[in-house]
């Protein structure tokens, strides 16, 4: 910029020039390094970003939010879906029981969960994990989730494990932002639009029930289940926690959960714990049921039993 023979004018030294050059290069490097952030689209709109906590949304707010999610799903995934926000029913508290004598370990429940709940396809995500256990031991240490032989194998039994919908859920206690809570009908839910993704709940859960969206879920439009719930099976955003909700978009409308319908043997019993005539109550009263890791005091509402 200045002739080499003339001394630098206005006190601009060579050192200053180097500094200027360094600063320019530095800024350019910063811009380049952070460039991927410009391709980051964590939310579709300002309303999305500023959305309030689920419990603070008015009925009108909620309606707007549901419509917006439907629109965003169409835009991002090309699917027409209906997102509802079913409320807990009075006088209903859900319970689930599983007959370990009948379960054959076919994992059809895990597959049904995957499809019903619009899980990420490549990662085979599912809220249910089935352990193959050895007769004579309830020690999970001896379990194996990766069995691949005809089932039921000799001297084995099968233990599907999913969210136990604890009455004292440690995952809810640890959440720093109240993004997860227990609903009056017993379901522990996550507000996917409020979760910050710290994964403390995943560390706190003793049942491996929580899942994280390590990347944006990928599902072909044709495979998307269009019947969706805000707190349950709508397609989750990247970077938030999710978990089994006993298919509340189904069960709050009186339907059986998807994993139960998929069970070929009827090992699964679902119903209203507050209804003395319900199937689940009959099981609790007439079978010798147990819960997983009872000593932790989590008070699971998911029960296991063997036939006598």
């Amino acid at each position: 910029m200045s002739q080499p023979t003339t001394p630098p004018a206005e006190g601009i030294t060579r050192r200053d020039m180097f500094k200027g050059l360094g600063a320019t290069l530095g800024l350019a490097a910063y811009a380049k390094a952070l460039a991927p952030l410009t391709e980051w689209k964590p939310f579709e709109s300002v309303e999305d970003f500023l959305q309030k906590h689920y419990s603070e949304l008015s009925a009108v707010d909620l309606e707007v939010v549901l419509k917006r999610i439907e629109k965003d799903t169409k835009k991002q995934y090309g699917a027409d879906v209906q997102v509802s926000a079913d409320r807990p029913q009075p006088g209903v508290k859900f319970g689930y029981a599983l007959n370990l004598s009948i379960c054959i370990g076919c994992r059809k429940c895990a597959e049904a969960c995957h499809k019903e709940n619009n899980h990420d396809r490549p990662s085979h995500q599912s809220y249910i994990r089935v352990l193959e256990m050895s007769n004579g031991s309830l020690d999970l240490e001896k379990g194996n989730a990766h069995y691949d032989h005809p089932v039921p194998a000799k001297d084995k039994f099968y233990m599907p494990i999913q969210c136990q919908q604890c009455d004292h859920p440690p995952c809810v206690d640890v959440c720093p932002v109240e993004a997860t809570w227990k609903e009056p009908d017993g379901i522990v839910v996550v507000d996917y639009n409020w979760c910050i993704g710290c994964r403390y709940c995943e560390a706190a859960c003793p049942y491996h029930a929580r899942r994280f969206n390590w990347s944006k879920p990928q599902i072909p439009a044709a495979e998307i289940n269009p019947v969706q719930g805000y707190l349950s099976n709508r397609i989750r955003p990247q970077g938030v926690m999710e978990k089994c909700t006993f298919c509340l978009h189904r069960t709050r409308n009186g339907k059986l959960p998807a994993c139960l319908e998929a069970c070929p043997t009827g090992a699964r019993v679902f119903g209203n714990l507050l209804d003395p005539d319900s199937e689940i109550r009959w099981v609790l009263q007439n079978k010798r049921v147990f819960v997983l890791k009872e000593e932790l005091g989590t008070k699971p509402q998911f029960f296991y039993f063997f036939d006598a």
Binding site: G105, A110, P122, H124, S126, S215
Partner: peptide
């Protein structure tokens, strides 16, 4: 009850590109 081939094996690591 007949033997069945289990479906849908779990995947442990994120295999998403």
């Amino acid at each position: 009850y007949p033997l069945a081939r289990p479906v849908f094996p779990p995947r442990d690591r994120i295999s998403v590109p």
